[in-house]
Computed example of a mutant assay.
Amino acid sequence: MSETKRSNRSSSIILEAVRNDLGLGVAFLVLFVGASILLGGTFFAWKNFSNVLRQLSTNMFLACGMTFVIMLGGIDLSVGSVIAMVGCFSAGFISYVGMPSGIAVLLAILIGVLIGFFNGFLAAFTTIPPFIITLSTMNICRGIARVYSNTKTITVSNEFFKSIASTYIGVLPIQVVYIIVVIAVSAVILNRTQLGRQILATGGNKQAAAYSGVNTKKITIFVFTFSGLLASLAAVIQASRLFSGTHTAGEGAEMDAIAAVVLGGTSMSGGSGSISGTVIGVFIIAIMNNVMNLYGIDSSWQYIVKGIVILIAVSIDYFRGLRQS
């Protein structure tokens, strides 16, 4: 009987995800077809697809973490700077300090996780808005990266460090495996655990969730710590892909993550959203960036386009909220 209930619940989750993300899937298909028409063989070249998969891994990590934060009704502006700081530390610990690469990577990731924990602790035990908290840590982490690296690129020649992001499984880059694992873990937490239900409840109505026995402070700390963990993992993978750590890494990455999450249907007011929507949002942003790069569109115009996409996504969320209310 319990197996039947679990099977029915899994089926209902899948059907609900398909129904909610149908419009987004159509938008992705239209973009894909449009890119194919505009760029033809250049877009369909396997080398291009492989590069897209390698590059979008960073945004996928950030967006999955950001989904949890926005579902909670918060925002995490520090993730881009965490990428720079953790990338510089992981490279510096190997090149400057001479640490074994495994220890260097783990220590750098731990520092990034502590930043996430700090954000969550302040958000949980004070009334300071998460926007202000993470805006502060965004500047602090970026500054630490600049000071530690002396505003220079820290190159790494360690083979293990390079292999983290340069390994291939057949013709697929290792980033595909990382992406699948992060999506799976995030989806399981959100859809199959009590923790996921408590995150949604806290984001929907924090006071009501507290009255029903949810420890909203622990939930807040977990969500921001999880975001810090994924940002730190993304930092190591990106630094490994570039064989270096640099203080400019991750600039604007938080905007791409927020765009993907909101485009994926997660409400900025909290309490609703899905990992499946975020995944489609990440692919839409990645293909959009790829098309603009291949088409030779100036980076200044790319910022404008991304801003318009975010504005459209937030407007859709706003009008959807009005309709539901």
Rank of each mutant, 00 (worst) to 15 (best):
G80A: 07
G80N: 09
S81W: 07
V82K: 01
I83R: 07
M85L: 13
V86Y: 02
G87F: 09
G87H: 00
S90I: 14
A91E: 03
G92E: 00
G92R: 01
F93T: 08
I94W: 10
I94E: 02
S95Y: 14
Y96Q: 07
Y96D: 10
V97K: 06
G98C: 09
G98H: 01
M99Q: 06
P100L: 06
S101N: 08
G102S: 15
I103K: 13
A104Q: 05
A104S: 11
V105L: 05
L106D: 02
L106C: 07
L106E: 07
L107E: 09
L107T: 14
A108G: 03
L110E: 03
I111V: 10
V113P: 11
L114H: 02
I115K: 08
I115Y: 05
I115P: 10
G116T: 10
G116C: 08
F117N: 09
F117C: 09
F118A: 15
N119C: 01
N119I: 13
F121T: 10
L122C: 04
A123G: 01
T126C: 05
T127H: 03
I128A: 01
P129E: 04
P130M: 11
I133A: 00
I133P: 09
T134K: 06
L135S: 07
S136G: 11
S136C: 14
T137A: 13
T137H: 15
T137P: 15
I140C: 05
I140W: 09
C141W: 08
C141K: 06
R142H: 08
G143D: 09
I144A: 07
A145W: 07
R146H: 14
R146E: 15
Y148G: 09
N150G: 15
T151D: 12
T151Q: 15
K152Q: 13
T153Q: 12
T153E: 11
V156H: 10
S157Y: 04
F160A: 05
F160H: 04
F161N: 07
F161L: 06
F161Y: 14
K162C: 01
I164D: 12
A165M: 01
S166K: 10
S166R: 03
Y168F: 03
I169Q: 15
L172W: 11
P173S: 04
I174G: 02
Q175H: 08
Q175G: 00
V176H: 01
V176S: 06
Y178C: 02
I179V: 00
I180F: 14
V181E: 14
V181W: 12
V182L: 07
A184S: 02
V185P: 00
I189M: 02
L190F: 00
L190Q: 02
L190W: 06
R192Y: 05
R192S: 15
R192N: 11
R192P: 06
R192K: 15
R192A: 13
Q194G: 15
Q194M: 15
Q194R: 14
Q194C: 13
L195A: 11
L195Y: 11
G196N: 02
G196P: 08
G196T: 12
R197L: 02
T202L: 03
G203H: 10
N205A: 05
N205C: 09
N205I: 12
K206N: 15
A209Y: 13
S212I: 13
S212H: 01
V214E: 06
N215H: 12
T216C: 02
T216D: 07
T216S: 04
K217N: 04
K217G: 06
K217C: 12
K218T: 04
I221N: 05
F222K: 02
F222M: 11
F224N: 01
F224V: 09
